[in-house]
């Protein structure tokens, strides 16, 4: 059986908000290491990979591996009934038809109990190769969100060019063109506000802004975001949170 108690409902609520528009149904794979999810969007252009480690829960117990098939829109509706500060407990039997969710207020004067039907999902797991990326860019998550939103007003695509001079996001469309260049900065007081660029070679890749804007729905989960890129491979966008991560992969646009 699974029993996982999470001190802050907000973590699960924000995570669902960050993935539910990209993915409709997914298996939550539960093991003694924690709860993970890997799912592609319908067009097979983007992939979400979530890990909530066991040590992020207190307590966490999972006797045997379980795949909980969940409609993310339904889970999101149920989670709407939880307050951000509530304590959430997830429970499932060994061969479950339902997921049980309990929301307790901080002072335990209100306990809400929900049961959600599970579904059978035949899910393809992609083998993601370990990659040493040529460019690793860490920047404030809010900055990345703003750049994606601003450039999506100009074009459907953005070209990200990482070089020793900085990282440049550039778009060109019918109304004109625009670009934002970030230089490396160091803010020792607030590391989350720094931009760092680690580069082994220059990288230039073009991506659909529709997906990137979608990824930035994870902004409330983390102060910083890391973009990892190599020429001719998918982009990895990672939001690290306490007790896990939310990663997105995005296939590039390639020249015809």
């Amino acid at each position: 059986m699974l029993e996982a108690r999470l001190a802050q409902a907000a973590v699960l609520k924000k995570t669902l908000d960050a993935i539910k528009e990209l993915v409709t149904d997914a298996n939550f794979d539960c093991s003694d290491g924690g709860i993970s999810l890997q799912a592609m969007d319908n067009s097979h252009v983007a992939l979400v990979s979530l890990l909530l480690r066991a040590d992020g829960f207190e307590p966490y117990r999972c006797d045997r591996n379980l795949a909980l098939g969940i409609n993310l829109n339904s889970l999101s509706k149920v989670l709407r009934s939880a307050q951000n500060e509530d304590i959430i407990t997830l429970k499932a039997a060994d061969d479950p038809d339902n997921l049980s969710l309990t929301f307790e207020s901080q002072n335990q004067d209100r306990i809400s109990e929900y049961e959600m039907k599970l579904m059978d999902i035949d899910q393809e797991h992609l083998g993601i190769p370990e990659t040493a990326y040529a460019a690793v860019i860490t920047m404030p998550a809010a900055e990345f969100q703003r750049i994606c939103r601003d450039l999506s007003g100009i074009s459907e695509s953005v070209t990200i060019d990482a070089s020793k001079d900085g990282v440049k996001f550039a778009s060109a469309g019918d109304i004109g063109n625009g670009s934002v260049t970030l230089k490396q900065t160091h803010n020792p007081e607030e590391p989350a506000l720094s931009t760092s660029i680690e580069l082994s070679e220059s990288v230039t890749l073009t991506f659909s802004l529709k997906y990137l804007v979608n990824f930035t729905k994870a902004t409330p989960l983390a102060g910083a975001v890391t973009l990892q890129m190599s020429n001719d491979v998918p982009l990895l966008v990672e939001y690290k949170m306490e007790g896990g991560y939310l990663r997105y992969y995005l296939a590039p646009k390639i020249q015809d």
């Binding site: 992939l47 992609l126 296939a251 015809d256």
Partner: peptide, 14 residues
């Protein structure tokens, strides 16, 4: 600009 690739061309399908 360019054609949208899919992840299947980069990652191993099961």
């Amino acid at each position: 600009p360019g054609k949208q690739a899919t992840l299947g061309s980069f990652f191993a399908m099961p």
